[in-house]
Design a protein around this nucleic acid. Structure first.
Lengths: 130, 130
DNA sequence: AAGAAATTAAACCGATCGGTTGACAATCGG
DNA sequence: CCGATTGTCAACCGATCGGTTTAATTTCTT
């Protein structure tokens, strides 16, 4: 109830920034190391000016901060606004966890049925991703 | 490594759909009940056609599904694509939980200091999130 | 001091955005 | 059958988007 007005304008900028694959890829790069504008530009076969504009969009959305050292601009990831976006999405979490829970229950029942038949030792549990 | 190519095109559409406050508000409404185009339009003092376009954007992003009964179109929330967006954001979760963790550590240290003074029984251990 | 390197600024381009209006197509209730 | 309700479609509008090119600015190197 509090966060409705607070960062509504933030969310606009953040989601818009994330809606572009080039900018998402840039964030992916920045997740590993601090990078300059030029380093951000080269992998996309894009002009410096083009990359500069993308970085400015990310910067205005608060997703990237910039420190200028000499003639080169170093960009680094700023995750707080990503957390705000995540918080917004979490309001809808129950809508997909509900379905996943029932799916999980089905798979678990199936596994138990197999286990009962085979009475084997190692239950083949495969972690989803991480 | 798998999900990089899979729904890249989905993410474009989903984040773009979420970048508009009217559409986010529509999703908020749809989180409570199934709604018709007209019901979605009225709270925003917007023409039917305008709302229709927004709904189409949400539909093309896979965030809303539509069932037509007679002359009225009923829209309902479809959360799977929101889950995909959430999954993308989770790749960056550590960047904001890190900071929260250090903050938590500070608070925990403070608590323990207080507890030591009082010589209480239960060590207040709080699991990070999950 | 001269020139290369890193970046922004400005102008421009076609495409898309968010929104409207007006015309059209169904469908429902009398 | 008539008229109201519900919605789409197409055309249009000004604004913004993603991208380029060209020019300018600053800094580093020699």
């Amino acid at each position: 109830m509090l966060n409705h007005m607070v960062e509504q304008t933030h969310l606009d900028a953040v989601f818009h920034a994330l809606a572009d694959p080039t900018r998402r890829a840039m964030l992916g790069q920045l997740a590993e190391r601090e990078l300059t504008i030029g380093e951000l530009a080269t992998p996309f076969s894009m002009s410096f000016a083009g990359a500069s504009k993308h970085v400015k969009v990310l910067e205005n959305a608060g997703l990237v901060s910039r420190t200028i050292r000499g003639r080169t601009h170093f960009c680094r990831l700023q995750a707080a606004r990503l957390a705000e976006a995540d918080a917004w999405l979490k309001r809808y979490e129950r809508f997909w966890t509900e379905r996943l829970d029932t799916l999980e229950a089905l798979l678990r029942a199936e596994d138990e049925a197999n286990a009962a038949v085979k009475a084997s030792s190692k239950p083949t549990i495969k972690a989803p991703k991480k």
